[in-house]
């Protein structure tokens, strides 16, 4: 099974030269409780970054700021130099209109923990709905794209199944195909395997592994430590809203610098 983000025509379009994510000084509070504190992180185009940390450490919130599902209180996020949620004109930052936010969002695909497939649409319709709604493809082209993507995630025989008729692992693979349909520069995974039976985790990780080889920028929040070690170029460890450690897996897992990282890894490994 291998993944290629293809148009209906079949050309490969995932150049490794795009998908640079910069996060600078991002802070975020909910009702006085700081969930993110001055977070700085640069993700290179085509890089695979795994974000680890205990529950409630702010990893999901950080992920969600990257496509503006969550606004930030301070700091900024850019994808390929484009600010998320704002636009610079002179020395001012203007809040973007919803239409612009939506347009920029299509550069960043999201795969959710609970899949969030649209239950009243079939697998193929779930994938085709966004390219059609955004006017990128006609209905039949979008259907063809959907069938192609379903084949890539190993579900060529399920285009007309409703999500509830699929297993968790199959649903998550449809969700990944749906995120790929817009050919995003960056893909965000928010604990993609946490809602799955242990048996089904593997099939989803296989798909992500293939994506990683392809050169799309991937940012993965996960609890699958072994998977992170295998697939990630860099590991980011977050605790209580602070980025405590960033580095290649060998270094973070082999010789963690921060005592908190040591403690966390000691418990989960």
């Amino acid at each position: 099974m291998s993944i290629a983000v293809t148009q209906a025509s079949g050309t490969l379009t995932a150049p490794a030269t795009r998908g640079l994510v910069e996060i600078r000084g991002v802070s975020k509070s909910y009702a006085g409780h700081e969930v993110l504190h001055d977070v700085n992180l640069t993700v290179q185009p085509g890089e695979v970054v795994a974000i680890l940390g205990p529950s409630g450490s702010g990893k999901s919130t950080l992920l969600r700021t990257i496509n503006h599902l969550e606004s930030v209180d301070r700091g900024w996020v850019t994808v390929d130099g484009e600010l998320i949620g704002y636009e610079q004109r002179g020395d001012r930052l203007f809040e973007l209109k919803e239409r612009e936010i939506l347009k920029r969002r299509t550069n960043v695909g999201v795969v959710f923990q609970n899949f969030n497939l649209f239950p009243h649409l079939t697998a193929a319709e779930n994938i085709a709905v966004a390219p059609v709604a955004l006017g990128r493809l006609g209905k039949s082209d979008a259907r063809e794209l959907a069938l192609g993507l379903l084949a890539k995630v190993g579900l060529a025989d399920k285009p007309d199944a409703y999500p509830r008729q699929l297993s968790g692992g199959q649903q998550q693979r449809v969700a990944i195909a749906r995120a790929l349909a817009l050919q995003p520069k960056v893909l965000l995974f928010d604990e993609p395997t946490s809602a799955l039976d242990p048996e089904l985790v593997g099939e989803v990780l296989d798909v992500i592994r293939d994506l990683a080889k392809l050169g799309t920028t991937l940012i993965i929040v996960t609890h699958e430590i072994r998977f992170a070690r295998e697939v990630a170029d860099r590991i980011v460890f977050i605790d209580a809203g602070h980025v405590l450690e960033v580095g290649p897996p060998e270094q973070v897992f082999g010789s963690p610098k921060h005592p908190r990282t040591k403690e966390f890894l000691g418990r989960v490994l």
């Binding site: 599902l69 969002r105 959710f112 609970n114």
Partner: peptide
Amino acid sequence: VDQGQLEAAAALGLPRHVRVLRIILPQ
């Protein structure tokens, strides 16, 4: 309708009328 549906629709960049007519109201 589950909040996750709204988020998924927003994350796909669906325009507001599509979110309402195609995703939210049918559910």
